[in-house]
């Protein structure tokens, strides 16, 4: 919230620290039942987390097609954050395990494509873990900030 206020102020004033900093494009694919609810909880308990993430709610991480991730990078994402239920806690029995398999495989491929595997992260965040959501998102965004722009976007930036 603080950052958005600063951003609007930018229009009138000179460059601030915020503007000098690199703001990565982060796509977060989160499951409806656990991580999205945790994000909601983080919101209602007023925990601040970086404004750089763009959250996309899916029913289950098991429906994440690796193409979604590759497409995100092609369209200029600097990082893709995936949040699902803890193993065994999946609302759809085992969707999160399917996601883990796919993302494990995709990480190896990403390296071959020249994308640092750290740009793709998978975390288990339960519905009551608002603080965990905040921590993981913060850490991830910081990590991407240090890595810098991916430079992989071939289409228009998102």
């Amino acid at each position: 919230m603080e950052q958005t206020t600063q951003q609007t102020d930018l229009v009138k004033t000179e460059q601030t620290d915020f503007d000098k900093e690199f703001h990565p494009n982060i796509v977060a694919l989160v499951c409806n039942w656990c991580t999205y609810t945790a994000a909601d909880l983080a919101g209602v308990t007023r925990l601040k987390y970086p404004a750089e993430i763009r959250m996309i709610r899916l029913m289950c991480t098991g429906m994440i097609d690796p193409r979604f991730i590759v497409e995100s990078f092609l369209r200029g994402a600097d990082g893709v954050f995936i949040g699902g239920c803890h193993p065994g806690d999946c609302h759809y029995i085992n969707g999160n395990l399917k996601a883990r398999l796919r993302i494990g495989g995709l990480k190896a491929l990403l390296q071959g494509m020249g994308i640092e595997p750290q740009r793709l992260a998978l975390h288990w965040i339960g519905a009551s873990e608002g603080t965990e959501f905040q921590k993981q998102v913060k850490d991830f965004v910081e990590g991407i900030r240090e890595l810098g722009p991916s430079g992989f976007g071939v289409y228009d930036s998102i």
């Binding site: 029913m59 289950c60 098991g62 429906m63 097609d65 609302h91 759809y92 969707g95 399917k98």
Partner: peptide, 9 residues
């Protein structure tokens, strides 16, 4: 069907 989307992926 409960709509998890595993088949879509």
């Amino acid at each position: 069907c409960q709509g998890c989307g595993a088949c879509v992926a």
